[in-house]
């Protein structure tokens, strides 16, 4: 056996180690990631068409009535414990001039009105999605969920869970 052959044979012995390292790096890079994270299928698209009743004015609102400036769409409900946690932060955002369209998701009108009276109303408008059809059209999995719509009317970001101090800087980056 020549010297070269022996070297090749020795090199072959390292293949399992190399494979192990590659797999190790691949798995390690996945550690600590949010396993519940699911990308939204609506990124880059317009808000789907809807006909929803406004909680405040009892008028039918369609997608044409949405703001022309960047804004947030926030799904909430009085039945949703995390929405209680989120509400004060939404109020501070609204005070800072952030435009938020609220979707009262699978909720009752009276309860929603009482909630806004007691806790304050951070929303530009609140639309009632009582059976949750608009929620399905937006691909939501529960409440709270928040979408960022940019100035050209495209959905650019979706957050599942509570908007808070810690994730606001990310969301704000999309709001333009």
């Amino acid at each position: 056996m020549t010297m070269r052959h022996r070297l090749i044979k020795k090199a072959l012995l390292f293949i399992p180690l190399v494979l192990f390292l590659i797999l190790g790096i691949a798995f390690y890079s996945q550690l600590g990631k949010n396993t519940q994270y699911m990308p939204s299928a609506l990124i880059g698209q317009k808000v789907p068409a809807f006909n929803l009743i406004s909680l405040n004015s009892d008028q039918i609102i369609t997608q044409d009535d949405l703001p022309n400036t960047p804004y947030l769409i926030n799904f909430w409900g009085t039945w949703c414990p995390a929405c209680h946690v989120e509400h004060p932060f939404l109020t501070t955002l609204a005070d800072d001039g952030v435009v938020i369209v609220g979707i009262d998701y699978k909720d009752e009108k009276a309860l929603a009105k009482q909630w806004l009276e007691e806790k304050g109303d951070p929303y530009l408008m609140v639309l009632m999605d009582e059976i949750g059809h608009f929620g399905v059209d937006m691909g939501i999995t529960g409440a709270p969920e928040t979408f960022v719509v940019n100035s050209s009317g495209a959905i650019v970001y979706r957050l599942q869970g509570v908007v808070s101090e810690s994730n606001w800087s990310t969301i704000q980056g999309y709001l333009k």
Partner: peptide
Amino acid sequence: CPKCQNQNLADSASGIAVDL
């Protein structure tokens, strides 16, 4: 099921699975 990710729509009892 988009909510409880290791279940199909048939198995899940989450609200969104019922809707779907």
